[in-house]
Design a protein around this nucleic acid. Structure first.
Lengths: 248, 248
DNA sequence: CGTGAGATTGAACTTCATCAAGCCCTGTGG
DNA sequence: CCACAGGGCTTGATGAAGTTCAATCTCACG
């Protein structure tokens, strides 16, 4: 198994794998853009950790409408349990990416009594809930310009490296639209307006620079922050006592 | 303490209260319409259980925009940790209601190692995440008519009692609008259109009947189901082994 | 150099918000 | 008992915002 996977996965969920044969429980999957992994319905305990590239948690309607509920990149953990019986939900590669898939089903009986594991999955789920609630508010109460500004700001914050350096957009206009509850043409129009206003500068259709993050933030009624990362808490490497900072 | 509270609370979180003085850790709060309970920011472990009436989990912007992210009634549990540092978030009474407030902070050290408790809060958070993701998709991809139809259908399913009986709307048009990402006038217009189409019949502005739930459902690209209640699993009374049905 | 996917732009149209007026119902005070 | 006040609901007129459809442009790739 590629050691890079473990570097990306700060949560170290794989330490909960069964001791015996390392076999099928942990696999590295490579997805080409557009490929999907389906969330399992019932009776399985799977996790996906993005190792490289960007992927989207999406849901779809029979008539083709699609909503992206989360954008995930290296180190992000998706809990396979998130599937709802209502609408199908899946993980979709926005660009070529690598996913570490953990199947802990065989250890389920043991893990059900393991406080460290339970605290870890609680923390993951809670982080995701906070992110989902913010995104929900974005879709419900921000207009198209505000949504795009917030998106550009958040992507800039999530990119590793110094502030002010170029940000790469790992997805198409249509993907952005499906994340923001808009359509591709609207996204494009908002982007050209933002270019003209000098709030962002595009080096290429998928690469931009934010010259003045504070100026971006002033256009929004909410602070810009990376979703799913609580800046008030130190990131707990190694997992396990993740509730520490919250239950104290 | 009112015994009704414990009847409403199928989760029985109060069994995790410290044994010693029953004191301040468990209080019944009565809220008049519009009153709020603020989510605590840091270092506390509180839960709210709605005993009677309806309340909303809301967030707000400085400019006055409001988004309701969840509608809660008797038996629903709100995890106080849900607060995000970004925008303020609170629980707001939509009508006069009673809330059982549990403060487990003093037991936190013990609970951090209690698998039953951890499984319980994980389950609560997960249910909430599933609901939030569905609502997010609703706001992102359904038009105003679809949103209102889904809302009316879900409220009908959440009401105890036989299908087809009258449903009471415990909230104003503006509250509905803030839940659905619309404004009050639009909600009103959609409702009159639905009345004319005979899909719903209104006995009063806040009471309606759905003569044919299947007909409602046919107007939607998603099935109608009560948020936060996974129909595929039996409701586990008494809490504790709530992960049983999921991790197996 | 052609091809095709993605991005941009324009024009027409639909949907929803905004502003304003009027209605319904309840509670209150003369 | 009636008049009135006020909150919530409804309805209309208008305009802004976003979508749809279609045409064009850009650019990487064969």
């Amino acid at each position: 198994m590629d050691a890079d996977a473990c570097i990306a996965c700060s949560r170290r969920l794989c330490e909960y794998l069964p001791d015996d044969p390392p076999g099928q429980a942990r696999t590295l999957v490579t997805l080409a853009r557009g490929e999907r992994l389906d969330t399992c319905r019932e009776g399985c305990l799977k996790f996906w950790i993005v190792v490289r590239g960007w992927a989207a948690v999406s849901t779809g309607f029979p008539d083709g409408r699609r909503q992206i509920t989360g954008l995930e990149t290296a180190g992000d953990v998706i809990c396979g349990l998130v599937a709802s019986p209502a609408a199908p939900s899946w993980l979709e590669a926005l660009e070529d990416c690598t996913i570490c898939q953990l199947d802990l089903s065989r250890s389920a009986a043991r893990l059900r009594d393991d406080p460290r594991f339970l605290a870890e999955v609680f923390h993951l789920t809670h982080q995701r809930l906070v992110g989902a609630s913010q995104h929900l508010t974005t879709l419900g109460r921000l207009d198209s310009t505000e949504r795009v500004i917030l998106f550009l700001g958040q992507m800039a914050l999530r990119r590793p490296g110094p502030a002010g350096a170029p940000v790469r957009l790992p997805m198409s206009r249509e993907d952005i639209a499906d994340y923001l509850g808009l359509n591709a043409e609207t996204v494009s129009r908002v982007l050209t307006r933002l270019k003209k206003s000098k709030l962002v500068r595009f080096l290429a259709p998928t690469e931009y620079v934010v010259p003045d993050m504070a100026a971006l933030a002033r256009r929004l009624p909410v602070p810009i922050e990376a979703p799913g990362h609580d800046p008030s808490l130190p990131r707990v490497a190694g997992g396990g006592l993740a509730m520490e900072g919250r239950i104290a």
